[in-house]
């Protein structure tokens, strides 16, 4: 990408937040729909949800086991997409607009005191 944005421009901030938020919001909506559907289906489709498999009811099997891999899958998807996007975002910034203080890349484990 040839066009570079100013780090401190409104344009960059809006793009950054919009893309991250739409990713978070779309995964959250899938997640909310799944969670919210379970009580509704329990109420309105009791025959399906209470059908028995291997001693469990279907709804027990879902809340007791199946929902956990779904959570992990959604979380994994989010982390991968979000990191990919961050890499892209870094490439979009004009390096000349980044702050140039020496301590910007202090190693992570560096000792830090409390307060200022």
């Amino acid at each position: 990408m040839s066009y570079k944005m100013d780090l401190h421009s409104d344009e960059f901030l809006r793009m950054l937040m919009r893309r991250q938020f739409s990713l978070s919001a779309s995964i959250a909506s899938v997640f909310i729909v799944i969670i919210a559907a379970v009580p509704l289906m329990n109420r309105f489709l009791p025959d399906v949800m209470n059908a028995e498999f291997m001693g469990f009811t279907f709804t027990w099997l879902f809340l007791g086991f199946l929902i956990f891999p779904i959570l992990i899958g959604l979380a994994f998807l989010f982390v991968r997409r979000s990191n990919e996007f961050e890499d892209e975002a870094i490439g979009m910034v004009d390096p000349a607009t980044m702050p140039k203080h020496d301590d910007a890349d202090t190693p992570a484990g560096a000792p830090a005191g409390l307060g200022h």
């Binding site: 780090l7 870094i90 140039k100 910007a104």
Partner: peptide
């Protein structure tokens, strides 16, 4: 929201 590599941390 900015990744740390942009030096704002």
């Amino acid at each position: 929201h900015a990744p740390e590599q942009l030096g704002l941390k």
